[in-house]
Design a protein around this nucleic acid. Sequence first.
DNA 1: AAATATTGTGCAATCGATTACCCTTTGTTG
DNA 2: CAACAAAGGGTAATCGATTGCACAATATTT
Lengths: 348, 348
Amino acid sequence: MDYKLHNRNMKKESHTTIHDIARALNISGSTVSRALNDNSRISEKTKKAVRDMARQLGYQPNALASNLRTSCTNTIGVIIPRISRYFFSSAITGIEELARTRGYNVIICQSNDQEAREADCVQTLFASRVDGVISSIAINTENFEHYKTFTDRNIPLVFFDRVCDELETSQVVVDDFKGGFIAAEHLISKGCKRIAHIGGPQHLNIYINRLQGYLKALRKHNFEIEEELIIESLLTREDGEACAKKLLDSPNRPDAIFAANDISALSIILYAKEIGLRIPEDLAVVGFSNEPFSEYVSPSLTTIEQSGFDVGTKATELLLDIITNKTGNHQETIVLPVKLIERESSNR
Amino acid sequence: MDYKLHNRNMKKESHTTIHDIARALNISGSTVSRALNDNSRISEKTKKAVRDMARQLGYQPNALASNLRTSCTNTIGVIIPRISRYFFSSAITGIEELARTRGYNVIICQSNDQEAREADCVQTLFASRVDGVISSIAINTENFEHYKTFTDRNIPLVFFDRVCDELETSQVVVDDFKGGFIAAEHLISKGCKRIAHIGGPQHLNIYINRLQGYLKALRKHNFEIEEELIIESLLTREDGEACAKKLLDSPNRPDAIFAANDISALSIILYAKEIGLRIPEDLAVVGFSNEPFSEYVSPSLTTIEQSGFDVGTKATELLLDIITNKTGNHQETIVLPVKLIERESSNR
DNA sequence: AAATATTGTGCAATCGATTACCCTTTGTTG
DNA sequence: CAACAAAGGGTAATCGATTGCACAATATTT
């Protein structure tokens, strides 16, 4: 409870207030306020005088006071797993860009992919009285109770990418199913016969969908589905290497792998090179995300492109619509397209 | 001026206030406030009762009200060129981590490396009444007037990485001079004879220092300094390619290049491969930053490691010290170490 | 010219937490 | 036991902007 820090040494700076303007023009504070907010009840003449004086005195509105009174902060909160992932930092760029043009600030919190920290983020954002929240859930979050802090109080909430079905909110995702499908079909078209899949945690929709898309492609082309070629992974660099070993050290190894993210695909490429497999001749690899490095790895990585920027922008659009109540439907799901980026790792 | 958006449809949610607690316990609001702030004038018994009731009612302090009164927001602002650069996103992670444990929120603004947007960020942060600001300046910022918004009002300001000497503030940098020096000396030790340098904009300290370090190494080893081997660049992917052409298409090309960032080094590697130069045999390359991709490029890139996380943490430490006025010296410069990461691109 | 509308402003309450100052108790000291 | 101190808690002003309501001045209508 006692987390407020007070700075007793703060110098009282001469922040000019509307009352300073009022005094200078010999009018009342309310008139100044209305003039600055372009209220129709104030004459143009007065407005101009106020605006000029405001400029002259270097007036900057005190958002705190205004927010307190109107009880809306013009701030949206963002919860993401980690800012250092390109997909997420692009999403933030998209979020910020749009939010800012619409007059909103953005507060960003990282969960570091940990459920407990995610709950902290929720508290922080709530305490900051954000007007709405955009979130992509931590990889190991299984319990969504903490989000009730928002939903219970009707604070708009939009999920993107890693969404949550338990809560009835709007969401923005890319077409993971289709991504999985075209990834697998691409490998099939290249003549691969035994296509493995390294999937993500199956409590997250995106990974379920990528897997399902992959399965559908196999079925469509009458491939036998081999359980042992489908592995669930945390999709980290380390775990990717473990998966690579599991799949490639076997005498009966697959001739292609579709990994649910680029990091895992990278792990596979590196391990395959280590044990002397040629890519793509002995093993074709497809990733997911089109991380910046995927273009420069050797061999360069075929992958599914998903635009973090677009996802972020869409999510913000949705959220701001809810906040300003322009739309009645607050359970929309927007699905953005994905695209296959063909590179060397599957080019045979 | 008129940028506040008001949401008339906001539902009045039952945010419990200290007065709700006060009423429930039949005491006054001030007592509740004091109890929650652990004021010594309140008895343990009362404090406990207040805390229990606060929990029971699901009380969450309204930061806005508190901030307005105390005129400190417990928020620090961050201005960075772009969040999608690994160095900067790591820095943010460092900043956030420390700030949060000290009870501060973080607002992040991206300048997209443009001076005008940087000025916007300054306005935004100022309007948010942040308690202090951490900034790394945009690559083309030449005029620092906008920062006076902070300095004039004694709002603490700390620069990191891309610092500004015109303003008298504290700063955190890595040892760019040494980085340039060891990069060049490393190439010398590998037997390179004509070492080129692709430098960054020379109004930024970091690039001046990297160049100077490089020069010192050449001088130390009695290398002739050839003007035409030193190019100033914007250090983007495209500009890097242009530089690569300029340096490598000449019949009298260098046998090594030290680039002031990894992106440029990457451009060089790609172009060199394109025109059939072998790396490192024909051309050794060293970058700067140790971006994540540099490990996976082929050949992998020798580079200078600088920890964004550490820089961010240090800058925050400095800033919070100033905010809470623990130290008198507000013009400290902290220099963090760098490290050479040897990889294939220079291994001959 | 009287009655009514319209326009332009001011007054004062309000948002929720903090805090200087004052007033009770209860405890301590000579 | 008087005198005083300390502990515990209440009152009300305050931070700066917003806004419902009242009202004066001017314009329009009948």
